[in-house]
Simulated assay, not measured.
Amino acid sequence: MNKEAKIYIAGHRGMVGGAVWRILEQEGYTNLIGKRSAELDLRSQQDVEAFFKEEKPEVVIDAAARVGGILANNDYPYQFIMENMQIQNNLIDAANKYDVQKFIFLGSSCIYPKFAPQPLKEEHLLTDSLEPTNEWYAIAKITGVKACQAIRKQYGKDFVSLMPTNLYGTHDNFDLKTSHVLPAMIRKFHEAKENGHTPVTLWGSGTPMREFLFVDDMARSVIFALENVLPEYLYNVGTGVDLTIKELAETIQKAVGHTGEIIWDSSKPDGTPRKLMDISKMHALGWKHQVELQEGIEKTYQWFLENIENFKEVKL
């Protein structure tokens, strides 16, 4: 890939898009384009087409999405399915229409069935029903994967989908109403420590198993896909290692330095019992993660502390 190729990163202000931007710059890419939502509404087909017609990007990395945890998905199902479909459909269609050379679509492991065999393989897609608490987001992402596959099949273009496991890292969302489990725990344990090591109540039983990938590793997988022609349409991206939510909580608690009690509220939903990615296809091509979980949590907590003024205005 030419380091001067014009690369448009949709969602460049988000955690994943921002990491992709940073790593691309570190790797010497010099022609990156990003638009804030105030400058370009990706839900508007007309606006997206006008942007592609004017800018003519050679590569598009779609890291734009409406995202959130169990609570947000459950409370705003229409926005999660409709806005995500609008965003990705406009980007994919415009990229096809304006002859973008390479399109990298980023999704989520939630596209796989709730009770799919573990670890999750790419071929498990659409073999059973989804997890009800986030099926709206999952269905939207599945349509994006299938749209990219259809373009590969019909037009022979280099459109590929990467499905990351649970992502976390610097620039994460720490709003307890909309954040995912790991950043939410960091904030809860930190504030409990600041309040005299008060008890921390966490959702569910603590028994579900989850896999976590540091966001810079996800960004490196995008650059790997950018610099190589991947032979298939869909690839899982993760570490291949999981742990229980209870073990995650204890790891974060130790990193934060909280010494109080952890209370598990089993009246709250657990979500999918296990979600481990089979990443053998990416490994076979030569990509592997670099940052292990404990190191990643410590880096994320350090970033949280450095940016804590941004979170103080939201009272719990």
Rank of each mutant, 00 (worst) to 15 (best):
N84G: 14
N74G: 11
Y78T: 07
L106T: 11
D99Y: 11
L106Q: 06
Y76S: 09
F103E: 07
I111A: 01
V100Y: 00
Q101D: 15
N74R: 03
Q79E: 15
D93A: 10
Q88E: 01
S109Q: 14
Y112E: 04
D93T: 10
I92E: 03
E83N: 05
Q86D: 08
F105H: 12
A116P: 13
N90G: 01
Q79R: 09
A94K: 14
D93H: 01
Q86Y: 10
A95K: 02
F105Y: 15
G107H: 00
M85P: 02
F105V: 05
F105M: 15
P77C: 02
Q79S: 14
M85D: 03
A95Q: 07
K114V: 08
D99Q: 11
L91Q: 07
M82T: 12
F115E: 01
Y98N: 11
S109V: 10
Q86F: 04
F103V: 05
M85I: 08
E83W: 02
V100Q: 02
N89C: 05
N96E: 06
F80P: 09
A95I: 09
D93K: 06
N96F: 01
Q88N: 06
F103L: 12
M82L: 08
P77T: 09
D99C: 05
K97Q: 06
D99P: 00
N84T: 12
I87E: 13
Q88L: 00
Q79H: 13
P113F: 15
N96A: 13
S108E: 02
A116G: 14
Q86G: 00
F103M: 07
I81W: 12
A95S: 15
D99G: 05
E83C: 05
C110Q: 01
I81M: 09
D93L: 03
K97E: 10
P77R: 09
Y112S: 12
F115P: 03
I92P: 00
F103Q: 08
